[in-house]
């Protein structure tokens, strides 16, 4: 695999062009496919409404449980499918390293910001796409966060993240019983998704635009 990036020009427009060029050459799907993955990703998030403040901050307040239900079901189903795809050679592992300090400090920062913002980096852009200006302001904050992280990565953040303790997965602790572990994990996580009690916080500002008989809050 050879990655060719033309370095002609370092103004904003050329660097945007280089982003397209990079994706074409990096061998992780064609440009159209990657764009399409984004369209479907954004479409599912928008269509299920999990980008809403009321869904994410609502979960932080335990007044809405759609986000954890959907997340756990996604993980449960994908874990079983993915494991057998990897066994068949149709996919590869891309496991992130265990960096204790980074995971804990990062997790605390991420979780508390998610509760206040009511978005995460994947759902935020979808909210901006439906006209949420407060999220756009948050994204500018995020961009500055990315800038600060990049500027002080070598001097500060890299040391804060700590050393990697390896890239372990759950089945690797049970040699010989991997298939069983995967099945149990997938089934248990999916069952958790089903048994989390369903609670929803509705947003009148959205629902008032729908015809009376199509409002989700008036159906069972």
């Amino acid at each position: 695999m050879q990655i060719i990036v033309k370095t002609a020009g370092d103004d904003f427009a050329s660097r945007m062009a280089q982003m397209f060029e990079n994706v074409i050459h990096q061998g992780h799907g064609s440009l159209v496919l990657v764009f399409l993955i984004g369209v479907i990703f954004g479409g599912i998030i928008q269509y299920t409404r999990v980008d809403k403040f009321e869904k994410i901050a609502g979960f932080a307040m335990l007044k809405d449980t759609i986000v954890p239900k959907m997340l756990f079901l996604t993980v449960g189903l994908t874990s079983i499918g993915l494991y057998f795809m990897i066994e068949a050679g149709w996919a590869h592992y891309h496991v992130k390293p265990i960096i204790w300090q980074g995971l804990i400090i990062g997790g605390i920062l991420f979780g508390s910001s998610m509760a206040i913002f009511g978005k995460c980096p994947g759902t935020g852009p979808v909210s901006i796409a439906e006209g949420r200006i407060d999220v756009l302001v948050g994204a500018i904050g995020g961009l500055l966060g990315g800038l600060v992280f990049t500027l002080y990565y070598d001097d500060f953040f890299k040391a804060l993240m700590g050393e990697s303790a390896g890239k372990l997965t759950l089945p690797s602790f049970f040699p010989g019983n991997e298939h069983m572990v995967v099945l149990i994990f997938g089934v248990v996580v999916s069952i958790i998704a089903v048994i989390i009690p369903k609670k929803e916080m509705f947003d009148e500002a959205d629902l008032c635009k729908l015809p009376e008989d199509q409002r989700p809050d008036r159906q069972s």
Partner: peptide, 27 residues
Amino acid sequence: SGFAMIIGARLAGGCTSGHFMSGMSQM
């Protein structure tokens, strides 16, 4: 929170998509 969220995600090496969905699916 947007600022802190990105610092947090980059410290941990992922977010809801990369860690929670993609990462937990790989167990």
